[in-house]
Design a protein around this nucleic acid. Sequence first.
DNA 1: GGTTTTTGTTTCATAATGTGAAATATGAAA
DNA 2: TTTCATATTTCACATTATGAAACAAAAACC
Lengths: 255, 255
Amino acid sequence: MKKYKSQPVSSSIQVIDRMVTLLDALAAEGSTSLKVLAAETALHPSTAFRILNSMILHGLVRRDEAGAYLLGPHLLRLAAQARIDQDLRAIARPEMEWLRDQIGETVNLTVRQGDEVVYVERVSPQRMMRVEQVVGSRAPLHVTAVGKLILGEAGESVIDDYIHRTRLPAYTVNTHCNRKQLLADIQASLTRGYALDNEEAELGVACIGVLVRDASGAVVAGLSVSAPVERRKLDWVGLVQETAHRISAHMGYAG
Amino acid sequence: MKKYKSQPVSSSIQVIDRMVTLLDALAAEGSTSLKVLAAETALHPSTAFRILNSMILHGLVRRDEAGAYLLGPHLLRLAAQARIDQDLRAIARPEMEWLRDQIGETVNLTVRQGDEVVYVERVSPQRMMRVEQVVGSRAPLHVTAVGKLILGEAGESVIDDYIHRTRLPAYTVNTHCNRKQLLADIQASLTRGYALDNEEAELGVACIGVLVRDASGAVVAGLSVSAPVERRKLDWVGLVQETAHRISAHMGYAG
DNA sequence: GGTTTTTGTTTCATAATGTGAAATATGAAA
DNA sequence: TTTCATATTTCACATTATGAAACAAAAACC
């Protein structure tokens, strides 16, 4: 993904401003009449009515038997999605910082999205040379430690589909570009409980990756350490696994 | 509250339609670029950009380091309120139905709102004569069983404030209209763990009320049985408490 | 390292869109 | 019943959001 200036532009859309004002008023009041909402938001009753009505059509707002306005079910659906992006990061960050302080290298949190992993959180050490992935950037599953574990979890037939779709493009000379190589590495990683990336995504960069699970045991993310290949030590595996376990525990994972 | 026709009017506001389309696309995709969002929603990129920007100003949407769009934190805040209105009802309903079937009278779920309780859910029996509160209607705290428990939870100084503000208007000859009477009743109710309404809101109607709590132990609602006074039996108290306990447990209450 | 391509951002003339005053309908209260 | 309060609909108007096009910035390519 390309990174743009991303300075928050200050212009806004009137109807959206008013809509949010109404939603906030509803959240504060609980359930209310049109009159109160109009007064509270300083909107003309007619205007408030029209906006509320439009929100009802989308399930953002609903009305009870008595005609009072309430926040609607669609908000719950939207928030459920927002929560995944938010909670995970908030929970993981302190643990990731601990891990970074133990080993002095960059620690990443990734999430699967289609045939790629997305970097959703990162903490880096204070060193001149370090590996740094931009939060929000992506990489194909087969060139990352975490990605290979995710593929392994999915099972052989899904891996074959993935191979067919993507043709396993090479990123470096070390990338596993054929089925046999890839399956062998994945199998080994699954049995070990952690995966390695030996300069498969970028020359000079090596990783150790493990999985993070939630209460239901489902994989929700991956935790990895990225370092210049000559600095990476396999002694770190224990620490990385320990950290991932703590994050999983926070997410409700029992095992 | 007055009850109006409340047939969903079908006219809508264009910007809100488009905004919701964008939010839905974001929820489906997880995190995406402007280009994908514009394509997915069939909006002009320029239009999508402006609407997204307006939502960012309100925290409904945010962007990560790489510039990708994500659902924002304000949705979580709104949803927290919506959840109380929704989950509570959904969780409570089957338990309320069970209680109604046990005793054959109307069962109400109420929530505090300012100096009143609001009826948020009701299940009634199949009988000719029964007590029926409209969902969404309100009653002052001091004339309802649940309301008196809520006042008791709040403590004496809050009760005094309440008395000052409202002057304890009388609804029937049985309404507690002076501080001493009210405090005595509240105190007795707290120690018993349930409250009664002996024709204090309406002549001929009597109630038994108890509190419902959430994971944090906070009071989130009240459960009550309303019956014609000559039919009400104090034997029901156990069943009412049992039902409230089950609802509290579903809300995460441990005690 | 320069060139092209892609994607994001800003501008601006235009008319479509949302606005609010006023009229109307509906329920509750008296 | 009549009165009153609130909700809903209508409609002429101008403010507002629109989208084409120009511009900027980053990535991809060579």
